[in-house]
């Protein structure tokens, strides 16, 4: 997804405004990809006629790390998908796992597994997943005590080694210079200090308000297995419950942080002495 923005930016580099040419790029897009495209379009990274969207319905994708755990940590040498089963040759012999057992968490409860916008559609619509359960995890976490939640956040962030894979893989993280890398002023230290890592992750997560499309990229690329989705899903839930917005779910929506609804927005966060 980054390539898309980079490609557009590069095509416009050192070009006078009047000389700019539209550059059309074809994108094969699943449901969540189209949500990202919508976010980019809403945020004016390129124009609608600069992408040709080839929509593909999606049955979900395999969570590689989960798969590995499922087969006891063995090394997968070869694999194929056959009738809802994944058949693998592993360092520990042949193994078979049901596909539905190793789908990524974000896919299991996906609400948008069919493309939202497209120019060309391929295939027949994918069957619904289980979106009703999408906030179960968040609700369970909300019910814990403050200290339990903090302990979990701390524990997860301790795994992070600041490799930036989550940021680099995220379709919504496309700032030319991330706040982490700014030096004047420096917002956050670059080392492995606990608080720096927490601040980095917190800020990155928080930048996803109205922008996280739950594609699962950050989770799947994280080499250390940080449970980022636990936090991103909360942001998604708040955005839905507070503002009735699901990121990138429709071209006509405005980004939720770019507007205000006088009648429905709650006031309870405002301090009145």
């Amino acid at each position: 997804m980054h390539d898309l923005i980079t490609a557009h930016k590069n095509s416009q580099k050192r070009v006078k405004p009047e000389d700019r040419k539209k550059k059309v790029i074809g994108v094969v897009a699943r449901g969540c990809t189209t949500r990202s495209l919508i976010i980019h379009l809403q945020e004016r990274q390129y124009e609608r006629d600069e992408v040709c969207i080839i929509g593909v319905p999606c049955d979900g994708y395999v969570d590689g790390k989960g798969l590995k755990v499922k087969i006891g940590g063995a090394d997968i040498v070869e694999g194929s998908i056959d009738g809802g089963q994944i058949k693998m040759k592993t360092s520990d012999g042949d193994k078979t796992v049901a596909l539905k057992d190793v789908l990524a968490d974000s896919c299991l409860t996906c609400r948008f597994n069919n493309p939202i916008i497209s120019d060309i559609m391929i295939g027949s619509p994918a069957p619904a997943m289980n979106p009703d359960a999408e906030y179960n995890d968040v609700k369970e976490f909300e019910a814990k005590t403050m200290e339990e939640r903090w302990a979990y956040f701390t524990k997860e962030m301790e795994k992070c080694m600041r490799c930036n894979a989550c940021r680099q893989a995220c379709p919504s993280c496309y700032c030319p210079t991330c706040f982490v890398e700014q030096s004047q002023p420096q917002w956050v230290g670059i080392g492995e200090d606990k608080s720096d890592t927490q601040v980095f992750q917190f800020m990155r997560l928080y930048h996803m308000v109205g922008r996280c499309v739950d594609c699962g990229s950050c989770v799947s690329v994280c080499p250390m297995g940080v449970d980022l989705r636990k936090f991103l899903k909360k942001i998604d839930k708040d955005c839905w419950e507070m503002f009735g917005n699901r990121a990138g779910s429709g071209m006509e929506d405005m980004p939720p942080l770019g507007k205000y609804d006088e009648h429905h927005d709650k006031q309870d966060f405002i301090y009145n002495p």
Binding site: Y152, V209, F231, K234, I235, C239, M242, Y260, F269, I270
Partner: peptide, 15 residues
């Protein structure tokens, strides 16, 4: 205001 509303809620969520 929306940023603050979500910030407050998110802070609470992480403890």
């Amino acid at each position: 205001r929306r940023k603050f509303a979500t910030l407050k809620s998110f802070l609470n969520y992480i403890g």
